[in-house]
C-alpha cells in the first residue's frame, strides 16, 4: 500500500475509531482497571489485587448443576457462564436454521420487488428491542396468545405453564429477536454467488443436491459465519430477555453482573466476571473459526 492510500484509509477509519475509543475502549479499560480493585460495603479499595480472579477459580465444595460438578468455592459465575453459552448456542442454531432458508429464498427465488422484500424483512426493527421482548411475555403468558388459542381450539383445558419463566422462553425470545440480523449477511453472500458456476455444475452432471452441497453451501459460508457470530456473541451477555421472560430459572451471566454491580455492592467482582466472559467468548469464537477453517474458506473465495 502506498503512503497516500494508507493515509486515506486511516482518515476514513478515524471517525469510527474515535467513536469506538470513546464509547467502547475507554469503558473496557475502566472495567479492566476496576476488576483489580475490591469493594467492601460502600468503600472501594483501590489497591491492585488479583483477588477477584482467584475467587473465580478458587476450589471448594462446589455444587452440582444438571449433573455437572463445579468444584469451586464460588460456583455461581461458572454455572451461569456455562448456562449462558449453552442457551445462546441453541438460540443461534435456531436462528441460523430459520434465517438460512429465508435468505436462500430471497437470493434465488425472488426476482421482482426485491426492495419490498428487504423492507418487509426489516419490519421487526420498527419496534424497539424491549417491546419485542415484552410482547413475548404476552404471547407465552398464562392468559397469553398461545394458551388462549389452544384453549379456544379445545386442545388443552388448563393453560400450559411451561411456556414462560424458564430457559426455553429465553431461547425462543432471543431467537426471534435476532433472526432479522442474521438473514442479511447470509443473503449478501448468497447473492454474490456467480450463477454461471451453478450452470456449469448442472452441465457437468451434478444433481441439484450435489450442486447445492458443493457450490451454494460453501460459498455462503462467510455470510453464515458472520451471522452466527453476530447472534452468538451478543446473546451470551443479554440481560433484558432473561429479566423479562426468564424468571429465576432463566437467569444468565448478564443478570449476575447486574446483581453484583447494583445489589451486592461488589462492582469489582462484576467487572472481573465481565472481563472473563469477554475472554471466554473471544477464545470460543477463535476456536470456532479455526475449527471450520475460516482462513481456508476466505482464501478459496477471495
Amino acid at each position: 500500500m502506498t503512503s497516500g492510500s494508507a493515509r486515506t484509509g486511516l482518515s476514513l477509519l478515524s471517525p469510527a475509531f474515535l467513536v469506538m475509543a470513546a464509547t467502547l475502549l475507554a469503558p473496557v479499560v475502566a472495567l479492566i482497571v476496576m476488576s483489580f480493585w475490591t469493594q467492601s460495603g460502600f468503600e472501594i479499595d483501590r489497591t491492585f489485587t488479583l483477588a477477584n480472579y482467584s475467587r473465580l477459580v478458587e476450589p471448594g465444595e462446589g455444587t452440582v448443576w444438571y449433573g455437572i460438578r463445579f468444584p469451586l468455592a464460588y460456583p455461581v459465575p461458572a454455572v451461569l457462564m456455562v448456562k449462558s453459552l449453552a442457551m445462546s448456542l441453541v438460540a443461534t442454531i435456531c436462528v441460523i436454521g430459520v434465517a438460512w432458508p429465508m435468505a436462500y429464498f430471497l437470493a434465488f427465488r425472488v426476482t421482482r420487488y426485491k426492495a419490498m422484500w428487504m423492507i418487509l424483512l426489516t419490519i421487526p426493527f420498527w419496534t424497539s428491542y424491549l417491546l419485542r421482548v415484552f410482547s413475548w411475555k404476552i404471547v407465552l403468558g398464562f392468559n397469553g396468545a398461545i394458551n388462549s388459542g389452544l384453549q379456544w381450539l379445545g386442545l388443552i383445558r388448563e393453560p400450559l405453564e411451561f411456556l414462560l419463566y424458564n430457559p426455553l422462553a429465553v431461547m425462543i425470545t432471543l431467537a426471534h429477536s435476532w433472526i432479522a440480523f442474521s438473514v442479511l449477511p447470509i443473503y449478501v453472500s448468497l447473492e454474490k454467488i456467480d450463477r454461471t458456476l451453478l450452470e456449469a455444475a448442472s452441465d457437468l452432471g451434478d444433481s441439484r443436491w450435489k450442486r447445492f452441497r458443493r457450490i451454494t453451501l460453501p460459498l455462503s459460508m462467510p455470510g453464515t459465519i458472520a451471522a452466527t457470530l453476530l447472534v452468538f456473541i451478543p446473546t451470551v451477555g443479554d440481560y433484558v430477555t432473561p429479566t423479562l421472560v426468564g424468571g429465576p430459572g432463566g437467569t444468565m451471566i448478564g443478570s449476575l453482573v447486574q446483581q453484583l454491580f447494583l445489589r451486592q455492592d461488589n462492582a469489582p467482582m462484576g467487572a472481573a466476571i465481565s472481563i472473563v466472559m469477554m475472554l471466554i467468548i473471544a477464545v470460543l469464537v477463535g476456536l470456532f473459526l479455526w475449527l471450520i477453517g475460516y482462513g481456508r474458506i476466505r482464501r478459496r473465495i477471495g
Binding site: G41, W65, V76, L80, P248, T251, R263, Q264, D265
Partner: peptide, 20 residues
C-alpha cells in the same frame, strides 16, 4: 447492619442464579 444486608443480598442473588 450494612454487612448483614449485603450478605443477604449476595446469598439471595446466588440462590436465584442456581435455580435449574
Amino acid at each position: 447492619t450494612d454487612e448483614v444486608q449485603v450478605e443477604h443480598n449476595r446469598v439471595w442473588g446466588d440462590i436465584k442464579a442456581l435455580k435449574m
